[in-house]
Amino acid sequence: MTTTVPTRPDTLPEQSSRRRPVVPGRVLPVVSTFVLFVLLFGVGSVRYEGFTSGQVFANLFIDNAFLIVLAVGMTFVILTGGIDLSVGAVVALSTMVAAATLRAGLPAPVVILLVLAVGTGLGVVMGLVIHHFELQPFIVTLAGMFLARGLCFVIGVESISIKDPFFRALATGTIDLPGGVTITWSVVIALVIVAVAAWVLHRTRFGRTIYAIGGSESSATLMGLPVARVKVMAYAISGLCASIAGLLFSVYMLSGYGLHAVGMELDAIASVVIGGTLLSGGVGYVLGSLLGVLVLGVIQTLISFQGTLSSWWTKIAIGTLLLLFIVMQRLFTRRNA
C-alpha cells in the first residue's frame, strides 16, 4: 500500500460528502426530553404565578447540583453497559467522612482530597472486581452500596453538623447573575463537570472507547482498544463524581449523616435514562442526563408549587417517566435489532 490508486474514477470526492438527516435518530430522545422539560416548565408558568422567574429556573440547578454531578458519573457507567448502585451510599459516606474529619480539625483542602480519594478508590475496586472476575456490575455495586452505607455508621450513627468556615462560605456564597438571579458555587462546579465530561466523552480516545465498549464490548476488544482500563476508569469516574456530589451535598445540608441520600442512586439512574441514554450502553449524552435531572427538578418544583399535592407524587412521576423511557428504548432497540 504505497500509492493511492483511484480504482473508480467515477467516484468523485463531492459525492462522498452527502446529506444527513435533520434530526439524527440518536439525538431524538434528548430532544424529546428537552421538549418535555419545556412543556413542564410551560405548564408551571401558565398555572402558577411567579413560576416564570429566572430564580425558579436557577433553583432547579441549585437544589439539584449534586444530582447533576451524580448523573454525570452514572452516564459514564451506563454508557459502558454497566450500572452503579453504590453512588447514593457513596454520597452519604462522603458527607460523613467530610463532617467527621472536619470536626476532628483537619483543614478543608485535606478533607476534600480525602473524600475524593475514598470515593474514587471505591469505584476503582468495584471496577476491578467487575472486569476481572466477570461479576455482574449490579451485584458488585450493590455490595459497594452496603459497604459505603455501613462505613457511614461505623464513623458515627448520629448526624454531624459541619461548622467549617470554608464549607459554610461555599454554602452561603452566591454569585449574582444579570436579572437579579443568584446561583451558588455548587452550580458552577456542577456545570463545569458537565462540560468537562462532555469533552472527555466526545473528544478523547478514552471517551470514544467508553462508547465503543457500550456498543459492543467484544468488538472493542477485537479492535484492540484498552477495554479493561477504560471500564475500570468508568467506575472510578462514577466514584469520583459521587464523592464530588457528596461534597456538594455536605455543603447543601451542612451536615454529614449515614441516612443522607437514601435512594439517590435511583434518581441518578432515572435522570440518565430520562435523558435518553440507553441502558444497554453505547448511546447517550451527558447533556441529556443534565436535562433528565432538570426534568426531575421541575416536577419537584411543580409539586411544591401546587401545594396540595404531596411530595410522594414526585416518586410516582419519576417511576412513570422511567417506565415511559424504558419502554421507548425497548421499542427503539427492537426496531434496530
Binding site: 435512594g263 410516582i316 412521576a317 417506565l323
Partner: peptide
C-alpha cells in the same frame, strides 16, 4: 420502575 414508584404509591 416499581422500586422507584412503589414507595410513592405506598405513600
Amino acid at each position: 420502575v416499581l422500586m422507584t414508584a412503589g414507595r410513592g404509591i405506598a405513600m
